[in-house]
Design a protein around this nucleic acid. Structure first.
Lengths: 230, 230
DNA sequence: CGGTGGCCTTGCGCTGGCGCAACGACGCGC
DNA sequence: GCGCGTCGTTGCGCCAGCGCAAGGCCACCG
């Protein structure tokens, strides 16, 4: 049985032999999710470690008052729940499929066994986590120092890196996102997002149709992201 | 040679026998820092893993433009640099002593050897890191939703947890911090911090002398922190 | 003891961006 | 084709909080 490419290329398996990869994948079960279904709920005990085979997840944190924070998106080849499944803390976040998705899942026990056999993977998981940490700190820094314009530009560029598709006229952010979601990611309101995007659209920097955004000039967006103007 | 108490109690060594602890500490070297000296600089290769024996560190992230973000403080018994020392990424942050400090240091190589012998420690490190992640996300959420008042109250309460000392009239934040530092931690300006603290002082919620803050009513501060008023 | 430098306070004017309200566009189901 | 629900746009008023500028307090030093 051939292993699907995205899993082969997952950074989680960096430095492993093909045999070791097979060993991991042989122990996994498959979970399929419909659009909108939830994989893990904040507060529930973390029983599994997941890897996205195909699809896309939205990771949320819910506050006591019910407001939600979009933590990140998880695409093909990316892991979810690695660290918590090792300790015995509950999931600190909720993960929901934003499109039909197929996951590979390992139980805590399999994970422990496999990590003991191939310790390189735990280093890879930590590396992944360190990257998320850097991301989170970048967000904090931007929120405390940058104005809305640059922050929104950053958000667009980050999304382009995470789920951008090459397109004849630029880079298309392949995930449909509402204005509210852009606002949540940027730390502003849907009104300001709407106003700013329409302004940039008239300037020719990008193009929006429905919930999709096509970035037409990465350099100029990077310029905005780096400056303190919008 | 008796092991200093703060290290004994470090969460990093949870689940270890006394002998295993001794094994770790026997491999460590001691580093002493004067006030203001820097232990690790952002961008430098991460060669060591540290544990604070006594003292206090300020962890900063510097932006390209030179603005600095206070990431966290590290007190006695707490680790620094655990994850990066495992991978081969450079330090993502700078750590500076805010008072005379004594550290224990392990090289990458010792760390790898010791972790192989006592894998529980890597789980402990990950747990620690997960806590920092939660902290960072809490900060992001607060910055995007809460007003300055509640955020500042949160900051004070967090500091009280990290380095609070019982005091006949309340809890004293044992670290001297400038208004600018409170502002950096809260995501506001020194002006607003000053105004808010003086207001709370007249209300009897707290008392400031020099750079020290004495919290006199945790319940009322928690109330402010949780509401959307100030 | 007077000077110097670092930190804190506070009055004041200004504005970025929030958020209501009203309306428009689009897709979907019946 | 019509109605309904979701999402996006935009005019407008408003205010939280920023940041300058001026002044005060305090510690430290020669």
């Amino acid at each position: 049985m051939p292993v699907p490419p995205p899993l082969q290329r997952s950074r989680i398996f960096d430095g492993l032999t093909d045999a070791e990869r097979e060993q991991w994948l042989g122990r996994a079960t498959r979970v399929t999710l419909k659009r909108g279904e939830t994989l893990a709920r904040q507060g529930e005990p973390a029983r599994h470690f997941y890897l996205v085979e195909t699809g896309f997840l939205k990771v949320l944190q819910l506050t006591v008052e019910g407001t939600e924070l979009i933590v990140r998106f998880v695409g093909a080849g990316e892991p979810f729940g690695g660290v918590v499944a090792l300790g015995n803390a509950p999931y600190p976040v909720t993960a929901t499929a934003t499109q039909p998705s197929v996951m590979r899942a390992w139980t805590r026990e399999s994970l422990a066994t496999l990590l003991a056999a191939t310790p390189q993977v735990s280093v890879n998981i930590m590396r992944e986590m360190a990257a998320h940490m850097t991301d989170a700190l970048t967000r904090v820094r931007e929120l405390t120092t940058a104005r809305v314009g640059p922050r929104l530009a950053q958000t667009l560029l980050r999304l382009a890196r995470q789920c951008g598709e090459r397109h004849p006229e630029g880079v298309l952010i392949s995930q449909p996102l509402t204005r509210q979601e852009f606002a949540d990611l940027t730390g502003t309101t849907l009104y300001t997002v709407s106003r700013t995007l329409t302004k940039w659209e008239t300037m020719g920097l990008l193009q929006t149709r429905q919930r999709l955004v096509l970035l037409r000039s990465l350099p100029r967006l990077e310029e905005i992201a780096g400056s303190d103007e919008d």
